[in-house]
């Protein structure tokens, strides 16, 4: 449709020639200052090309004479953040964990700091809320393999479990089946004995047969009553909490092949205030001990 420019009868102004449902547009001249703003924007953009990173090149880009870089900006922002945390970081380093927990300001700061550090470092295995998974302890409950006091938690975080640290928390359950220490039938009997510890056995005869087996092979670490021993990180077998599963099949598997979960050492990777904050945060998840 070719535009038909006409003179508008009322205003005497020419129309653009386009018409929409009987409405046509007047072709009034733009104000000149509008044009100046356009020129101003052109000048601005040229200036922008010169001072800021702007044009992509084949393998690089024009850097701009101000040397602005968003990466550097992030680094600077992170440094500023660290600096702004300086005071509270000092507090979290110098105070004892008990003092941190008792001081509302320090505690709230530790919880926030710990939560963010937990998300970055711990959540991969323990879950975002510390809910755990098979083989990875739930940090919200009242079961602690190596102890649940503030100090125990801080030590576990610092040295890890079966980690590369020289001070690591260390213990190893023998693989009774794989290494031929016990016969499969004995392991089946033992599993009934373990089930019986939490009152779930259905085979009293097997429990009787395994009593001596448990005393000979298991009680050293798990205790004569099966209540575990934190010195070895040996779990309590009488409670309702099972790290790998509490059904008969899983218990047989555990006795046969043993378990050796690993937690890395964080002592060399995280700074003192972060580890302290993490200890307070993890302690807060389940109320700790």
């Amino acid at each position: 449709m070719s535009p038909k420019r006409e003179k508008d009868a009322i205003t005497g102004v020419e129309t653009t020639g386009h018409e929409w449902d009987g409405i046509s547009e007047l072709d009034n001249p733009l104000p000149r200052w509008w044009l100046w703003i356009f020129y101003g924007c052109v000048v601005w953009s040229i200036g922008y090309w010169v001072v800021m990173p702007a044009w992509p090149l084949l393998t690089d880009y024009t850097r701009g004479i101000w040397g602005h870089s968003q990466r550097q900006q992030v680094v600077a922002d992170l440094d500023a953040l660290k600096a702004s945390r300086g005071a509270i970081g000092e507090k979290l380093t110098s105070m004892t964990l008990e003092q941190i927990e008792a001081d509302p300001t320090a505690q709230q700061a530790a919880l926030a700091w710990g939560k963010s550090a937990f998300g970055d470092n711990c959540a991969t295995c323990h879950g975002a809320g510390g809910g755990g998974a098979k083989g990875y302890p739930n940090l919200n409950d009242d079961v602690w393999l190596w102890g649940g006091s503030l100090e125990d938690i801080r030590h576990t975080i610092t040295v890890g479990v079966r980690s590369t640290s020289e001070e690591t928390r260390q213990s190893q359950m023998p693989a009774f089946g794989r290494d031929g220490i016990l016969e499969p039938a004995q392991i089946r009997d033992l599993s009934e004995y373990v089930l019986n510890l939490s009152g779930r056995s259905t085979d009293p005869e097997a429990v009787g047969r395994a009593t001596q087996l448990f005393a000979d092979n298991c009680s050293t670490c798990h205790g004569a009553d099966g209540k575990g021993n934190r010195a070895f990180g040996a779990p309590n077998l009488t409670d309702a909490d099972w790290l790998y599963g509490g059904d008969k099949q899983t218990i047989i598997e555990t006795i046969t092949k043993a378990r050796s979960g690993v937690m890395p050492t964080w002592g060399g990777r995280l700074d003192a205030p972060t580890i302290n904050a993490l200890a307070v945060y993890v302690h807060s998840l389940g109320g700790g001990e």
């Binding site: 975002a128 409950d141 389940g286």
Partner: peptide, 18 residues
Amino acid sequence: RDRNPLYVRLANGQIRNA
């Protein structure tokens, strides 16, 4: 209310929410 974990089973089998 805590959504992760939704609930926690304690050693004695009781259920706890946070």
